[in-house]
Design a protein around this nucleic acid. Structure first.
Length: 831
DNA sequence: TTTAGCTCAATTTTT
DNA sequence: TTGAGCTAAA
């Protein structure tokens, strides 16, 4: 039943004995109930860490064989269970670390899991070199879907279309390539937005659908164009030696599906597979897992998936909730364990959140409970507007910080959309309270960092046309649009039939080299400019093998004058970019140190030999890393632990003693358009988001709505969120400060069109922002007869109510702006 | 080739 | 309202 032969020989006496009794005991009875270690009379000594688990967690740890789904509620000790399980598999010699795979969705989750497995196994102190080294030193393969797949692709390069190291394209690189593909096909960007085509391609990739499998409806032009672009895009992607995020997964799936040798290798190797956040997996990830684990495909069937359908908030990104709901069908004989005890929050919070989520229909039967204190009621505060909202939150934070001696790091503010952060930032800055925006612009997404990374990518992989185009005129060297167009054209000719003399495909880089050496193709001046760029890149490529990564970086800066240009610009922004580049320098140095530390004890000579590995490794991690550097972006000079501001989505997986959920208003949260039909599933996803937010709070939870809110420069009167209605009053402490800002006027546009009524409503709600903007459209095009200017037409309207500004065009294309209230009398059909 | 003004769009974003 | 991206002028 269990193949012990491949397990490493037992080194410790205790482990060996444990192992032997364990095996005997498993043979006697395999039912899960009997597997609870520590039963009276059982002569088994389980590792101490197993006894630190509750009954359900322990059950999930001890069901090692066969498919297992763990439905883990919020705060139920899921990570503890998973790490214990992995440690237990190793400790009991069921598997060597090498045979264990665990996939997560974020680097952070992977890092935490690695860390905790090490700690549980007591390895951390003995072998500092093992830190973060993943499978190098016999630790389990723990990583994100993407990092695990990229490592596999590097190992199995022979099964990929690549012969040289590949680079990874992020979303903006991808968009560039989509645009260039559209350009090649002569598709007008105005007729079909590149972004929507990019989104369609990614949707297909989430479902592991290849271009030839797309079946556009006969009358659907958009779908037909998507198919064409997708085909071209894939060709270009591979010609550039590049992968996008979706392709990383799809390619591994296809390799496992089509290449029996590789499939068998990994099916054999990964004896125990774990998947975290299973509710967020998409179709392609599901198929990939099937290839590795499902016995129907030859897998060993030991797959443990952990998830919570109530926390599935990424349906819109391709997550397929069926994966979790259908697990038991996909894996017959699957065992189910529910972790329902919450260790995080007060009873009030857990019960209130439970009432909210109960309104969803598509869920499994699972009820969270807790032994914790009842705690304080949830504060539901109604404020006048978004400014008051920020003032109230900050004053509460100040009050709790002084009265209850809470650290700023104890607080967190969650909002639905990033745009909502501004009010809070303003007030926090004014009050000199340190704060940090979580999940804003990634460090690696900053322009200056992306520019330098593009240089590094081109040095590593000159076939990468997207990166070349990014840097060919950065900093400016007189290569503008005209020249780029010419180069594109020439490249297309090279690529086309009869292009490469030897039949080899010609890269963009090749085209540039030709253009530089043959001025008859363009002009002497242009050829010279291109030539300078080509020489620069060639020099960098030549130097690369001799240099450390950080030295190469400095060479790039020197040769391009990148920092010099920024300093010359001497604006606040450009100087901030210089700082980021310095930060990047530090990052490179740390990366090098880590690398050499991991391969500890290298001689000078060996170091010299291996330093060429640095560049590809760094490029890879920079593409896949995101929140590792999340600590950055903190305001300078605020060393104190900051208040965290983030979207509800970013809050998943975190917890805070005090949580403020703001902007709890219909239209904003749940995010719906009142004038459109919103499918129930969409509202359910919003509700899960609300559930996620609430269950982040340990002790105090505040939920706020503003009576008036400015959205996109328009004024909106939104009803309080329906989620308030779903929380029984006994859990709420209602504070109404809605009139604090003075009398509330009705909107300029009067009547409110929503079927919903709410007896907690204190005001006749006005017009939601979204409606105002449609009224704006009704206004545009209207005729007017102005006493001074004569007849004219409304061109545009900004703002709302009395302050609304209207642009009018009169005879002779004369445009004037007026406040609407001065014009009301002259407008047709005006109120 | 650069840049100043204009239009247009506008949830959420683990990689 | 904000910003990104693009067209018309310097």
């Amino acid at each position: 039943m269990i193949d012990f032969d491949s397990a490493p020989s037992s080194s410790g006496k205790k482990a060996g004995r444990f192992f032997a009794t364990q095996a005997k005991w498993l043979e006697e009875d395999e039912s899960p109930e009997s597997q609870a270690i520590g039963r009276a009379g059982e002569p088994v000594e389980p590792p101490a860490f197993v006894n630190l688990l509750n009954d359900r967690q322990r059950e999930a740890v001890l069901i090692t064989e066969g498919p297992l789904i763990v439905l883990a509620g919020a705060g139920s000790g899921k990570t503890k269970m998973l790490t214990s399980r992995i440690a237990y598999l190793i400790e009991s010699r069921r598997a060597s670390p090498h045979q264990i795979l665990a996939v997560t969705f974020t680097n952070k989750a992977a890092a935490e899991m690695r860390d905790r497995v090490e700690k549980t196994l007591g390895l951390a102190s003995q072998d500092p070199g093992a830190r973060g080294a993943g499978s190098y030193l016999g630790l389990p393969e723990i990583g994100t879907f993407h990092s695990v797949c990229v490592r596999l692709l590097r190992r199995e390069m022979h099964a990929t279309p690549f012969s040289k190291p590949f680079v990874i394209y992020d979303d903006s690189d991808q968009l560039s390539l989509v645009k260039s593909a559209m350009d090649k096909l002569g598709i007008d960007e105005k007729a079909f937005s590149p972004k929507s085509i990019q989104a369609a391609i990614n949707r297909a990739k989430c479902d592991a659908i290849e271009p030839h499998e797309l079946m556009p409806a006969a009358h659907n032009i958009l779908e037909k164009q998507v198919k064409r672009v997708y085909e071209q895009y894939q060709k270009d992607l591979f010609a550039n030696n590049a992968l996008d995020f979706g392709e990383i997964i799809c390619m591994v799936y296809r390799i496992l599906r089509d290449n029996e040798e590789v499939r068998k290798k990994y099916q054999k190797r990964f004896r125990y597979i774990h998947v975290d956040e299973y509710q967020d997996t998409n179709r392609s990830q599901y198929l990939l897992l099937t290839m590795l684990a499902n016995p129907k495909q030859g897998g060993q069937g030991n797959i443990c998936v952990v998830g919570d359908e109530d926390q599935s908030i990424y349906k819109w990104r391709g997550a397929d909730i069926r994966n979790i709901l259908d697990f038991e069908t996909d894996y017959p004989g699957a065992q189910v364990v529910k972790l329902e005890q919450n260790y995080r929050s007060t009873q009030t919070i857990i019960k209130a959140a439970g009432h909210v989520i109960r309104n969803n229909t598509s869920r499994k039967d699972k009820t969270l409970w807790t032994d914790n204190e009842v705690g304080l009621p949830i504060v539901r505060a109604q404020v006048a507007d978004e400014r008051m909202e920020a003032e109230f939150v900050v004053s509460e934070i100040k009050r709790l910080a002084s009265n209850e001696e809470r650290a700023y790091a104890d607080f967190s503010i969650f909002y639905r959309t990033n745009a909502q952060s501004r009010q809070f930032e303003d007030v926090l800055r004014r009050e000199k309270i340190p704060y940090q925006i979580v999940g804003g612009l990634r460090f690696y997404d900053r322009k200056e960092i992306k520019d330098i990374l593009s240089y590094l990518k081109v040095i590593l992989n000159p076939a990468d046309s997207v990166s070349i185009k990014r840097i060919i005129n950065t900093p400016a060297r007189g290569i503008g649009k005209t020249t780029i167009d010419k180069a594109d054209e020439y490249h297309a000719r090279l690529e086309g039939p009869g292009g490469g003399a030897d039949g080899e495909p010609r890269s963009y880089w090749d085209a540039l080299q030709h253009l530089a050496s043959d001025s008859s193709l363009t002009s002497p001046a242009t050829a010279k400019k291109i030539g300078q760029f080509v020489v620069l890149i060639q020099r960098l490529m030549r130097e690369q093998p001799k240099l450390l990564l950080s030295e190469l970086y400095h060479l790039i800066l020197d040769e391009t004058g990148y920092v010099r240009e920024l300093r010359k610009e001497n604006t606040e922004e450009s100087l901030a970019r210089v700082e980021n580049l310095e930060e990047f320098d530090t990052l490179l140095l740390e990366f090098e140190e880590d690398f050499f530390a991991q391969h500890g004890g290298l001689s000078e000579e060996e170091r010299n030999e291996r330093k060429v590995e640095l560049l590809p490794l760094f490029i890879e991690q920079s593409a896949l890393a995101s929140d590792a550097d999340q600590a950055m972006g903190q305001e300078a000079g605020t060393n104190a632990t900051p208040i965290r501001l983030m979207t509800l989505h970013s809050s998943k997986g975190l917890e805070f003693p005090v949580v403020f959920m703001v902007g709890m208003e219909e239209g904003l949260f749940p995010s719906i358009k009142p004038w459109e039909e919103t499918p129930d599933e969409d509202v359910e996803e919003e509700r899960r988001l609300c559930y996620v937010g609430m269950t982040r709070a340990r002790e105090n939870l505040f939920m706020l709505n503003a009576v008036v809110r400015r959205i996109w420069g328009n004024i909106a009167y939104n009803e309080p969120s329906r989620f308030f209605d779903e929380i029984p009053a006994e859990f709420l402490d209602f504070k109404d400060m809605g009139r604090g800002g003075g009398p509330v006027r009705a909107s300029a546009y009067g009547q409110y069109a929503s079927g919903r009524s709410n007896d907690r409503d204190l005001y006749d709600a006005g017009t939601p922002a979204y409606r105002t903007s449609s009224n704006r459209n009704e206004l545009i095009g209207q005729k007017i007869d102005h006493p001074d200017y004569g007849p004219g037409t409304v061109l545009n309207a900004e703002g709302a109510g009395d302050e609304q500004k209207i642009t009018i065009e009169f005879k002779g294309r004369v445009q004037r702006k007026f406040l609407r209230r001065y014009l009301a009398a002259y407008l047709e059909g005006s109120d």
